[in-house]
């Protein structure tokens, strides 16, 4: 039973899961008791199949612990024989191994928030993975990109004096479709990039442009706008450069990078033009 979690789990997220699991052992014990309470109500739902084993497990907790092992062993053996490596079979809260299936909701929320914060740091602060760009945003998520695209659309539509709806729709469509097209462009150039990781990176790199758009909305000076947008544009491009350049071979690097810069430049033009 133990080799399967090790084989199926990998990456930083699993380390976070293990840390969270250890930190909340008491919560798991509480969850286990709650599940024990749930069992009686679950029994009537399936009397024909599991009535006798369920009743025995409910009435005799020590036998439940004893009976659990052969069941788990029997279940895990066919799985390893079939060679299914994409399925991570996890025991329930009653079993010896807690997993993300039985963790409290708050643990899930905290893990997702920590992931978003760590991904944002890769863009805001100098990227520690510039030498190995594939490791950046390995723990990808699309919540940050979604938030930044909507935020940019909101800022632009607030700044616009007329046609707010069109401005928002155009901004959202350009950014969402642009990120997808850019990723497909890299894939079609024969690059080895992961679709969602690329989407995540392009979205997070919008953060500097979001800040620039916010500053431009608050200030009316055209010269200040030019300076701010230029700085944030350079920042976004600098943040996006490593992953995109490493994804394709050096001969085609320009073909992969040019559309990325073009998208960011078009966003910058939108920010400057809308007043």
């Amino acid at each position: 039973m133990s080799p399967h979690p090790l084989h199926s789990s990998s990456g930083v997220s699993d380390m976070d899961e293990m840390a969270a699991t250890h930190a909340h052992a008491h919560a798991h014990a509480h969850a286990a008791r709650a599940q024990v309470v749930v069992l009686p109500s679950a029994r009537p739902s399936s009397p024909p199949r599991a009535s006798i084993p369920v009743s025995s497990s409910a009435y005799a907790p020590p036998q439940t612990a004893a009976a659990k092992l052969p069941f788990s062993a029997a279940v895990s053996a066919p799985t390893s024989a079939s060679g299914s490596i994409t399925v991570a079979i996890a025991s329930s809260g009653l079993g010896p191994e807690p997993s993300t299936l039985t963790e409290p909701v708050w643990d899930t929320v905290k893990r997702d928030l920590a992931r978003i914060v760590s991904n944002l740091k890769l863009v805001v602060f100098p990227n520690p993975f510039r030498e190995d760009p594939g490791k950046a945003l390995r723990d990808w998520d699309l919540w940050g990109p979604f938030f930044f695209i909507v935020l940019l659309g909101l800022i632009l539509s607030w700044s616009a004096t007329a046609k707010k709806s069109q401005v928002f729709a155009v901004a959202f469509a350009v950014l969402a479709a642009g990120a997808i097209v850019l990723t497909l462009n890299v894939l079609l150039l024969g690059g080895n990039i992961i679709f969602f990781q690329s989407l995540s990176l392009l979205g997070y790199c919008l953060f500097p442009l979001d800040v620039g758009a916010l500053i431009c909305m608050l200030k009316d000076s055209v010269i200040l706008k030019m300076v701010v947008v230029t700085v944030t544009l350079a920042w976004s491009s600098w943040a996006a450069y490593p992953l995109m350049s490493a994804a394709v071979n050096p001969k085609r690097k320009a073909l992969a990078l040019y559309p990325v810069f073009l998208m960011y430049i078009s966003v910058a033009c939108l920010i400057i033009a809308i007043d």
Binding site: G11, F71, S72, T86, A88, S92, Q197
Partner: peptide, 30 residues
């Protein structure tokens, strides 16, 4: 539960996680 993650070799892996058979059999039908 399902999610996607990238392993150490840089490949995208889709994970599908479910309880063991005994726990699944006890799930409420409604």
């Amino acid at each position: 539960r399902w999610w996607n993650e990238i392993n150490d070799e840089g490949e995208s892996v889709w994970k599908f996680e479910c309880l063991d058979g005994e726990s699944l059999a006890r799930m409420n039908k409604k």
